[in-house]
Amino acid sequence: MGRTSRAEAARHREEVVAATSRLLRERGAAGMSVQDLMGAAGLTHGGFYKHFSSKDELLGIAATTAFGELLALLDQLSADLPDRSEARTALLRHYLSPEHRDTPGTGCANTALAADAARSPADSPLRASYAVGVQETVRRLADIEDAPGEDASEARRMALVDLATMVGALTLARATADTPLSDEILQTAQEALSTPPNP
């Protein structure tokens, strides 16, 4: 294969992964065929197996890509806002917003892929990618938690609470979209996470 052909094949593979990452978050794994995934990248399904051994392999790679977007956002917040409290506040505003609720295709993988990961076999690439992604999300969130005395175990506990609350609130808000309750859920969760705990 010539250099141009290899570069084109690599570009096509990246396009398929990016399209699958978006569709996976929008529709879920069950709602997509190989033809859908290749078509979303502007390719025919005949070339699928030149790039991937199976749809399951592609879903695992796409999940990793989806988590990569969130992790990059968390890293960017840490870099742009060295004050942990400011970084956490910016994350809460972004995560628990109507804009995030209304754009699942570019939204958080923790929320969008949870049901698919839970339904997948324990040894599936999607489930493995999801578990790694959640672990990395918690680790990055702990970096922006303002834990008393820089206590690492308390920062991790706070990160788990934040993640569970944000994912739950976003899931409920998406399920009740186009109703006043949806906005209320987002606002209430943001307020609850923004309120300092009682001493």
Score class of each variant (00 low, 15 high):
Ala169Pro: 09
Leu126Arg: 02
Tyr49Glu: 10
Ala30Gln: 14
Asp151Pro: 09
Gly149Arg: 15
Thr106Pro: 00
Thr176Lys: 12
Ser194Arg: 04
Asp80Trp: 09
Gly105Glu: 12
Ile144Gly: 00
Gly133Pro: 10
Ser21His: 02
Asp146Ser: 12
Ser78Trp: 00
Ala142Asn: 05
Tyr49Ile: 12
Ala147Val: 03
Gly107Ile: 11
Phe67Ser: 01
Gly60Ile: 06
Ile185Arg: 03
Gly31Gln: 04
Thr171Asn: 10
His45Asp: 14
Ser54Arg: 11
Gln35Leu: 09
His100Phe: 13
Asp102Ser: 13
Leu24Asp: 04
Ala177Trp: 10
Lys50Gly: 15
Arg119Asn: 05
Glu145Met: 12
Lys55Thr: 04
Ser129Asp: 07
Val17Lys: 00
Ala109Ile: 01
Ala40Glu: 10
Ala87Lys: 01
Thr195Arg: 12
Ser33Pro: 05
Arg93Asp: 03
Leu172Glu: 04
Ala114Asn: 02
Ala10Gly: 07
Met158Cys: 08
Ala7Cys: 07
Ala128Asn: 08
Pro148Gln: 14
Leu74Phe: 11
Gln76Ser: 15
Gln187Phe: 01
Pro180His: 10
Ala175Asn: 13
Ala189Met: 00
Gln76Arg: 15
Pro104Asn: 07
Leu81Glu: 00
Thr176His: 14
Gln135Glu: 14
Leu91Glu: 00
Asp56Met: 10
Gln187Trp: 00
Ala177Cys: 14
Cys108Gly: 08
Glu99Asn: 09
Ala147His: 04
Asp123Val: 03
Val16Cys: 07
Ser21Val: 01
Ala142Met: 10
Ala115Ser: 04
Asp178Ile: 03
Gly42His: 10
Pro104Gly: 05
Pro125Glu: 11
Leu71His: 11
Glu86Gln: 14
Phe67Ala: 04
Arg25Thr: 06
Ala118Arg: 06
Leu160Cys: 06
Pro104Tyr: 07
Leu170Ala: 03
Ser78Phe: 00
Lys55Gln: 07
Ala147Cys: 05
Ala79Gly: 06
Arg127Trp: 02
Met38Ala: 12
Pro98Thr: 02
Leu77Lys: 01
Ala41Glu: 07
